[in-house]
């Protein structure tokens, strides 16, 4: 196999890896680098469990070739908390019981954070459409949407000038 040598920044740290030309970013994150928080639910871009942020844009890592990550930055669920400090989206998911099995949760949290990073005050409808690419089969979405709304409110508070 003619492996490619790829240099990236993952969750703020320089990361190099070797990959097959057809390996997806999801394959490499999970099996190569060991970041298994990013999940595979469909491998076709229909469930959002593999959502990561690539150069500031959230994408399905199953629909990105690992080779495309050359020189780019990747943010995964493992980088959402700052050290031991959970991100408000993570904390609100816990406070609301917005996860049951938890398998879709990393994808939802990465996607919700991406929404709040660009829209600090989304409506319920905006949240639902933004998250339409993330399937959850356990919760019926109710508590997830409420958690995101409350995380948005919390972040707005934090951002208010003292």
């Amino acid at each position: 196999m003619n492996k490619l040598h790829i240099s990236t920044i993952i969750n703020g740290d320089a990361q190099e890896f070797l990959c097959d030309p057809t390996a997806t970013l999801l394959d490499v994150l999970r099996d190569g680098i060991g970041l298994t928080g990013t999940k595979e639910g469909c491998a076709s871009g229909d469930c959002g469990a593999c959502t990561v942020v690539l150069d500031g844009q959230m994408v399905c890592s199953c629909l990105v070739l690992a080779a495309e990550a050359q020189g780019r930055t990747v943010a995964t669920i493992e980088g959402v908390a700052e050290g031991a400090m959970l991100h408000p989206v993570q904390r609100q998911f816990l406070e609301h019981g917005a996860l049951q099995c938890g398998f879709c949760t990393p994808g939802f949290i990465v996607a919700a954070k991406a929404l709040l990073d660009r829209n600090p005050n989304p409506t319920e409808t905006e949240i639902r459409y933004w998250l339409a690419g993330n399937l959850c089969r356990c919760t019926g979405y109710d508590k997830i949407v409420r958690a995101v709304m409350d995380a948005a409110a919390e972040l707005r508070q934090e951002r208010m000038p003292a």
Binding site: Q57, C60, A132
Partner: peptide, 9 residues
């Protein structure tokens, strides 16, 4: 087309 994740690509 697709989801936000898909449309970002």
């Amino acid at each position: 087309i697709g989801s936000v994740q898909v449309r970002n690509r």
